[in-house]
Computed example of a mutant assay.
Amino acid sequence: MIPARLAAAALAATAAFALLPAAAAHAEFDPVRYVALGDSYSSGTGTGDYFDPACRRSARAYPQLLADGLNAEFTFEACSGARTADLLSTQLGALDAETDIVTVTIGGNDIGWADAVKACLTPLADCTDEIEDSERLVQLQLPGLLDGAYGAIANRAPNADVYVLGYPRLFNGASTCGALRQPSVAEQLLMNEAADRLAGVIRNKAEEHDFTYVDVRRAFEGHAICDDVAYLNGLAYPPSESYHPNAMGHQNGYYPAIARAIV
Rank of each mutant, 00 (worst) to 15 (best):
7 A>K: 14
9 A>N: 06
11 L>N: 08
11 L>F: 11
16 A>R: 04
17 F>S: 08
18 A>Q: 14
18 A>F: 15
19 L>P: 02
22 A>N: 10
23 A>K: 07
25 A>Q: 11
26 H>K: 13
27 A>S: 15
27 A>L: 06
27 A>N: 07
28 E>P: 00
36 A>I: 10
38 G>C: 04
38 G>N: 04
40 S>K: 10
41 Y>S: 01
42 S>T: 15
43 S>R: 08
43 S>H: 06
45 T>G: 01
47 T>C: 08
49 D>G: 03
52 D>T: 07
54 A>C: 00
55 C>V: 09
55 C>A: 15
56 R>F: 12
56 R>W: 07
61 A>I: 09
61 A>L: 00
62 Y>S: 02
62 Y>I: 10
65 L>W: 02
68 D>Y: 08
69 G>D: 14
72 A>Q: 01
72 A>W: 10
75 T>I: 09
79 C>K: 02
79 C>D: 02
81 G>T: 12
89 S>L: 02
93 G>M: 01
95 L>F: 11
95 L>G: 08
97 A>T: 12
99 T>Q: 07
104 V>F: 04
108 G>I: 11
108 G>V: 10
111 I>N: 03
112 G>F: 03
113 W>H: 03
114 A>H: 09
116 A>C: 11
119 A>Y: 01
121 L>P: 00
122 T>Q: 15
123 P>T: 06
124 L>A: 14
125 A>H: 13
127 C>R: 05
128 T>H: 02
128 T>A: 14
129 D>Y: 12
130 E>V: 03
130 E>G: 01
131 I>G: 04
134 S>Y: 04
136 R>Y: 07
137 L>V: 10
137 L>Q: 15
143 P>M: 13
144 G>H: 03
145 L>Y: 13
148 G>L: 11
160 A>N: 06
161 D>P: 00
162 V>A: 01
163 Y>F: 15
164 V>K: 10
165 L>G: 13
171 F>K: 04
177 C>N: 09
177 C>D: 04
179 A>Q: 06
179 A>I: 13
182 Q>L: 13
183 P>F: 12
183 P>T: 14
185 V>D: 03
187 E>V: 04
191 M>R: 05
191 M>S: 03
191 M>D: 04
193 E>M: 07
194 A>E: 12
199 A>H: 10
200 G>C: 01
201 V>G: 02
203 R>E: 15
203 R>C: 04
205 K>I: 12
207 E>W: 08
212 T>D: 13
217 R>C: 02
220 F>K: 09
220 F>E: 08
221 E>Y: 06
222 G>M: 06
225 I>D: 03
225 I>G: 00
226 C>E: 10
232 L>D: 03
233 N>P: 06
235 L>F: 10
235 L>Q: 13
238 P>A: 13
239 P>D: 15
247 A>H: 07
247 A>Q: 12
249 G>M: 06
249 G>L: 02
255 Y>V: 05
256 P>M: 08
261 A>Q: 09
262 I>F: 02
